[in-house]
Amino acid sequence: MEVPDLKMMQKPFSSQEQQAKERHLISEAAAGNGKAFEQLYQLYFNRLYQFIFRINRHHDCIEEIINDVMYVVWEKAATYDQTCRPSTWILGIAYLKSLKSAKKNTKREDESVEFNDELDYFPDRGARWVSQVEDSNWLEAALEKLSAEQRAVVEMTYFQGLHYSEISEIMQCPENTVKTRMFHARKILAKFFLELNSRS
C-alpha cells in the first residue's frame, strides 16, 4: 500500500539541492556576509514560525524566539561542522528555545488574572459554542492535549517531514524516545478523531 497521493504534499525542505544552498548560506554568514544571512533568515522564517508555534502555542512571542534562534545561528555559524543537515542544527536550536519559552508561558498563564466590567456585556448563550469550535477544529483541540515534546515530534514528522533519527538529534534524546512520544501522541489524536466521527 503506497502513499502516492501524499507525494505532492512533501515539503522541499529535505532535497539535496536545498541542503546545499543552506550550507552555502551558513558558511557565507560565518564569513560575515549579511546578505546571505538575510536570505537564510527569509528561507527559515515560515518554517520556524510553524515549528515554534506548534511547540509553545503562543504566537505573541514567536518572532522574538525566531530572532533569538537566528541570532545564535549568526553568532555560531562558524562552528557549524556540516556533519548534520542545516535544518537539524537550526531546528535543534529552535526546539530548545521554544521549550524554554513554553515553560515560561505556562507559568505566566497561571499568574494572569484580569477581569473587568466588559465581561457583563457578553451574550449569555451557554456553552454550546465551545463544542462547536471543537468540532470545527478538532486537530487544534487534540494538539492542545499533547505535551510540548509530543507536539514537537508530530510537527517534525508531519509538517517538517523529518526522519525519526533526525528528530532524535534535534531533541537530543534516543530514537526510541521519539517513537514512544509519537506512540502516545497517536493514541491521543486517534481518540479525538474517533470521538469526533462518532459525534458527527
Binding site: 502513499v3 514528522t157 508531519y158 525519526y164
Partner: peptide, 8 residues
C-alpha cells in the same frame, strides 16, 4: 508516521 512522510 515516517512511512507516510516518506523519510524511511
Amino acid at each position: 508516521p515516517w512511512y507516510i512522510n516518506r523519510s524511511l
